[in-house]
Write a protein that binds this DNA or RNA. Structure first.
Lengths: 344, 344
DNA sequence: CTGTTAGCGCCTTCAA
DNA sequence: TTGAAGGCGCTAACAG
C-alpha cells in the first residue's frame, strides 16, 4: 500500500500539500491539486484511516451490537443505522452477541479498543447490564440502546411503543370477538416483554375483562421450549383460550407449531396474533395478523441520536427516550369470531 | 480514555513493561505483572487498537461486503464468516452494497482505508467487477468471493455447487412425474444463475427431454418484475408448464405471487421448486420444496480461506475454488403428479 | 499557497 | 527482566 509520502514524491510536492488536497481543509492551487490527484490515481492510493485516526483521534466509526443478525428484525435495524451513519460520513461495524452476556462484554471492549465513537446496543437477553452500562457512560462513551431498554440506567434509547402496541393487539382481538386471550411472552426480565404484557392487561381492563393469570404463558426465546409449553397448555381442553397473542417472533413460531401439533388451526380453532413477521410474504397460509415494528426507523433514529450525542460533545446531559409506533397488519388469523362460537 | 502511559505511571513501571504484559511477548516478573494488571483494571484501560495497528501494520480485521443483509441468506453467511474469524482472533466488518456497483467501489475503498487485512466479497449484481478486482489483487489485498463468482478473474471463491444443485432440483421434478418444467432465473450475467440453468438443462438432457426455450424465463432480481412476467407467461394456457423451478428467492416470490394471481395453486395446478427458503418455518402453506444452500458454511469456509491467504502471506499463488453441496428439502409443492394428469 | 515538523499511542528493538 | 527511544502514516499548526 502506497503512503502519502510516495504520493508526495510522485507529485513532486510535500506531504503537507497532499494532505491538504485530501482533506480539503486548506486551499491548494489548481496546478498542484491536479498533480496530486493524478498521483493518487496512478498509485491507487487509499489514505490510511488508522494513521489518520491516531492523529485526529476521530474514527468516524460507530459500532452496533445485536443479539443475532439472522433474526430478520435486526438486519433491518442495522440497515437503518448504517444509512443514517452514512448520511453523516460515518461507517458502522455490526457484530453479534449471540444473546450471551460474556460475548457482549467482549464486544463492548473490542469496539472501544477499535475506538468507535459511539455504540448502538441491543442488550443480550441474559445480561446484567446495569453496572457495565454505567461504566461505559462514566467513561464518556456515547451509547444508545435499541429495542431492549435496560432498567435504571440513564441512557438514550429507541424502541417501539410497547405498551401501546400490546394494547393495540389486544384491542384488535377483543374487537374481533375473542374473550379468552392467552398471551405468550418471552422472559419477563426483558422490559419489552413486560411492557407488551402491560398493554395487554390495560386493554383487557378497559374492556372490563378480568385478568386471568392462567392466560399469561411466560416462556423464553427458544422456539422448542415454547412449543412444548404451549402444547401442554393447549391440551387442557377446559381451559383452552380462544385466541393467542405472542409478544415476539421466536415465541410465536413455537406457539404456532404447538397449535398445529395439537391438531388445531387458526383462525378456525383459535385466533392468532403476534409481534414480528413470520413469513417473508403474506401469500403463505395461515396468514398471521402481525404487529410490525418499524425496525428500519428504529435503527435510523438511534443512529441519529447517537451522532447528535457525539457531535454535540458531552454537553447534553438529558436522557432521550424515543418510542416509535408499531403498525397492525391484519390478516386471516384474527378474522371475526363466528357468533355461535362466541356463546361459549 | 486512559493510555498505556497512564497505566505505566499508576503501576510504577515503564510503558515498555506494560506493553510486555499486554502482548505477552516478553516475560515479566510476577510482581510487576500483577501491578500492571491491577492498574489496567482500575483505570478501565482498553488498548488502543488504532495505535497498535499503526505500529504493527496489522489490524486483525476482515471486511465483508454483501448486497443486502435483509435477505436472510446473507446474515447466515456473515455469521459463519464472523465465527471463523473469531476463532482465529479476527473481527469482521460487515457492510451492504445494496446491489450497487458504485457503492461497492466505495466500500472496497473504505475497507482498504480501514486497513482490513482481507475482504470477503459477494459482488453486486450489476457490477463490472473484473478490472476492479484485478486492481485489488494486484495491490496484494487478499480477497475471497462468495456465492457469486466473477468471470475471468483469478480469485479464490466459495459457493454452492450450482450445476449439481440445478440438476438435483430438476431431477426431483422429473422423478415426481413433471415434464414441462419452466425455469425462472434472475439475470443470466450472474454466473450462478447460468450454472443453475445449466444443471437444469443437463438433467433434462439426461432424461431425454428436448430443451424448450419457451420454458426458460429469464428475469431479474426484482420481485415485482418477476411477478408480471410470470403472470403473462402463465396466462397462455396452451403453453403452461406443469412445474416451475426458480433459481433464487426474490424471483421465486414473484413467481409464486403470479401463480396465485392467475388463480392457480401449487401443487394442484403446477409443482413449485426454488432455491432458498421462502418462509422461516415449514408450517406455512403452500409448503415449498426448496434447494437449501449451506449459507453458514459458505461464510465459514470463505473466512478460513481468506485467513489462510493472509497468514501464509502472498506465497500461495494457486486459486482455490470451493463448491459446497446444496440440500433438497422436499415439501408439498412438488408432490407426485397424479397419473391421469401425466397423460397430458 | 506551500513546506516543515511535532506528535497521536503503541510496539519493538536494543542496551543495561 | 526492565527501560528508553524510534517510528508506523497522517494531520495540523506554524513558518515561509
Amino acid at each position: 500500500m502506497p503512503t502519502i509520502k510516495e504520493v508526495a514524491e510522485r507529485a513532486g510536492v510535500s506531504v503537507g500539500t497532499v494532505s491538504h488536497v485530501i482533506t480539503g481543509s486548506v486551499p491548494v492551487s489548481e496546478d498542484l491539486r491536479v498533480r496530486v490527484q493524478t498521483a493518487i490515481r496512478d498509485l491507487d492510493y487509499h489514505p490510511n484511516h488508522v494513521a489518520r485516526s491516531l492523529k485526529t483521534s476521530r474514527t468516524r466509526t460507530l459500532g452496533i451490537i445485536v443479539p443475532d443478525m439472522t433474526i430478520s428484525f435486526f438486519p433491518q435495524i442495522i440497515r437503518g443505522a448504517e444509512f443514517a451513519a452514512r448520511e453523516r460520513g460515518y461507517s458502522l461495524i455490526a457484530v453479534n452477541s449471540i444473546e450471551s452476556a460474556e460475548r457482549q462484554t467482549e464486544l463492548l471492549s473490542l469496539l472501544r479498543s477499535q475506538q468507535v465513537e459511539g455504540i448502538l446496543l441491543v442488550i443480550a437477553a441474559g445480561s446484567t447490564t446495569a453496572s457495565e452500562m454505567m461504566r461505559l457512560i462514566d467513561a464518556g462513551v456515547p451509547v444508545v440502546c435499541l429495542d431492549r431498554v435496560p432498567e435504571g440506567v440513564p441512557v438514550d434509547s429507541v424502541s417501539v411503543e410497547n405498551v401501546t402496541a400490546g394494547a393495540m393487539g389486544t384491542d384488535h382481538l377483543l374487537q374481533m370477538g375473542y374473550r379468552r386471550i392467552a398471551i405468550v411472552t418471552g422472559p419477563l426480565d426483558l422490559k419489552n416483554e413486560q411492557r407488551r404484557l402491560e398493554g395487554y392487561q390495560q386493554s383487557l381492563r378497559r374492556a372490563g375483562i378480568a385478568l386471568d393469570d392462567d392466560l399469561v404463558w411466560q416462556g423464553n426465546l427458544r422456539t422448542e421450549d415454547l412449543e412444548s409449553m404451549c402444547r401442554e397448555r393447549l391440551s387442557d381442553l377446559s381451559r383452552r383460550p380462544d385466541a393467542i397473542f405472542c409478544t415476539n417472533g421466536p415465541t410465536a413460531l413455537g406457539a404456532l407449531r404447538a397449535v398445529r401439533s395439537c391438531g388445531l388451526s387458526t383462525p378456525d380453532d383459535l385466533a392468532f396474533l403476534t409481534f414480528d413477521e413470520l413469513t417473508v410474504d403474506d401469500l403463505f397460509r395461515p396468514a398471521i395478523t402481525t404487529i410490525v415494528q418499524p425496525a428500519y426507523e428504529i435503527g435510523h433514529k438511534a443512529s441519529e441520536l447517537l451522532l447528535e450525542r457525539i457531535e454535540q460533545g458531552k454537553s447534553r446531559k438529558d436522557v432521550q427516550t424515543v418510542r416509535l409506533p408499531a403498525k397492525l397488519r391484519v390478516r386471516e388469523s384474527t378474522r371475526k369470531k363466528p357468533a355461535h362460537d362466541a356463546v361459549n
